[in-house]
Amino acid sequence: MNQRSCHCDKMKDERYLELKSYLDALTETDGMAMQILQEAQRIFGYLPLDVHKFIADNTRIPISELFGISTFYSQFSTSPKGKHQISVCLGTACYVKGAQKIVDKVADALDIKVGGTTTDGYFTLDAARCIGCCGLSPVMMIDEDVYANLLNVDAIPEILEKYRA
């Protein structure tokens, strides 16, 4: 194993301890980059430079390869995610029924762009492809909550407010 840096400071952080024990339990790291990043994303919520470095130094996987994977798949994020995840469906049915207006309204209400996170760290806005319930279109999800038939976009600020509590 390369000994690039000791990461001693990180060993006081429970999240790094959890990731370390996951990595230590692996018998083989070849071909495991995807799983390792998924586990790291689960633990940290996102994948910053330090997490990439930590994984690279504890496996034989080059940091560039890890970064290649984490920037290829949309499931990974290299910047922090908000406490609540807003997904607006932009599948065909939702789009036809005005989902773009929902996106615009949310973006306007929170002053963020699609993919962005609010400065207070409460919300991240993402555009989703078909969620699979076209009968309810247009649809927005916040975390696991589904908001169906959301034709009245003026109701959105009130919905968002509930999650700030």
């Binding site: 430079l49 990439h52 080059p62 940091i63 560039s64 390869e65 890890l66 970064f67 290649g68 920037t71 290829f72 290299t78």
Partner: peptide
């Protein structure tokens, strides 16, 4: 060593170091 890899995807793919 492996200092370079593909980053991003699709049209925005580049060969570059991490971050």
């Amino acid at each position: 060593i492996g200092v370079l890899d593909y980053t991003g995807r699709g049209f925005n793919t580049r060969v570059a170091p991490a971050f």
